[in-house]
Amino acid sequence: MLELYDIEIGSRLLLGTARYPSPAVLTEAIRASRAEVVTVSLRRESSGERAGQGFWSIIRSLGVRVLPNTAGCHSVQEAVTTAQMGREIFGTSWVKLEVIGEDDTLQPDVFGLVEAARILTADGFQVLPYTTEDLIAAERLLRAGCRVLMPWGAPIGSGRGLNNLYGLKALRAHFPDVPLVIDAGIGVPSHAAQAMELGFDAVLINTAVAEAANPVAMAAAFAQAVEAGYAARLAGPMEPRDMAAPSTPVMGRAFLG
């Protein structure tokens, strides 16, 4: 079973809660995905409106574990403060740590990420850092106290799948015992299945479900893909080869020429 910071999680699909057409569709999509962990965030609340309060009561009613993020933070200080605020509101020491380096790709600033991870770990947080496939950054994050890594597949919301297969395979091979969650860039269920076949422990999906024509049906499709990819990984996929190899045995073949 998937273990994140000593917590057993029954589903290898983690789901984001943003960009759904309505709270009802969000609720049904979470159910259809069978996700047990969903990401949440914080935003400014004006005193007149209660949008945040309504959202939070929906999430609580579903009985899922929440993973608060620090989305949109561009500095260590912002990310640390946002993480502290999230811990108080959501009552969990888990944080999906994002320190964004630049806005075109929303690429993680791995230098800021390592620093923020160190500060938050020392403050008792259990940090799940949104990072790249960079091996050295991964090593530093582990040294900073992270026990889970969340490398991107492709830029957030791009739906491009696993952009750097070589880099991601290298990351998996280099850290065989660290839970690795592909976070961001997954566009369709086949991307998620591919990530699982490569040996990643889980995937975190948001836009691909929320912006599908039918988010609830897509959530179910992703659940199946993640299960299929994980089962395939356990079954041991064959190695690809350059030339054909007959699948029908040639021994005993009739000579009719």
Binding site: L42, R43, F55
Partner: peptide
Amino acid sequence: PASARGGARVSEGDRLEVLAPMQGG
């Protein structure tokens, strides 16, 4: 923290952020 709000002094020109739960990815 909520527990420290009673003792936290607010002064002219201070920047206050008040955040609530929202959807996130």
